[in-house]
Amino acid sequence: MKENVRRRDDRTTGHVREAIRKELAADRSGEVDTPETKPADGRPIIELQDVSLAFDVPIIENISLTAKESETIAIVGESGTGKSTILKLMLRLLLPDRGCVLIGGEDITHLSFEEALKVRQKMGMVFQGAALFDSLTVFENVAYPVREHTDLREDEIEERVRQKLQLVDLEPDEVVDKLPSELSGGMRKRVGIARGMANDPEVMLYDEPTSGLDPLTTGTIARLILKLQRELGVTSIVVSHDIRSVFRMATRVALLHDHHIVFSGTPEEMSAAEDPYIRDFLGGA
């Protein structure tokens, strides 16, 4: 009986992996724009070196991860494995108990709060719920980082905001005066991306960019992230549960399990992996 269940599970996992392989093959053939999955040979932009963090219980242990210029790294894993924690460490919203976090070669764990604010200006972050300021309009949300950190004139700010909204496939005239509460989930995510991109950061961090969205909008957001990577060459870190989107967007995938990175490689390498946990993870995805 157990043997039958195991065989059925294996068959299901095999089907899913086969589907992912086919999807990737279709993507490569030009149906959908995909990133280069060759290992990037640019300079390291983000490095985590033997990073550990615990809040009463261990969250992550001895994590090492490097994101090179123009790379898109996806961090995947079960809920509660510390994926979002890694993003917060990169932003220095959290400090590791051990190890170093280097941004552009600079260890940010020793920086003061004010110095950390300056480092964060090089990065754009897209939150799971978009985290738009609900008392501000779409225009004011996207203009916020520009007003905070540049001396641009009002007309230049407006031009920048319109340009960023167009970049995320939003029609500026239709959305600039709306409040976040008047937008759909997908539009909120796009405005979040536009706000993250407002000051042309070197690094974009995405926390579950496709969660809570319908399949069509999920595909749109995934293509959008891919487009930004292609057109602007920003280094991106994507935390996601959505394996299909991850395989479309990422040049490399890191799988977190039991506080450690148990796999790091290209999407093709991951889909071909024989490790039982990876097979289970992809099968359940």
Binding site: K88, L91, L93, L117, K118, R120, Q121, M123, G124, M125, F127, Q128, G129, A131, L132, F133, D134, Y144, P145, E148, H149, R195, L205
Partner: peptide, 11 residues
Amino acid sequence: TEQIDALNTLG
């Protein structure tokens, strides 16, 4: 709703 974190990340 992570808006405080968003402020932090926006410098």
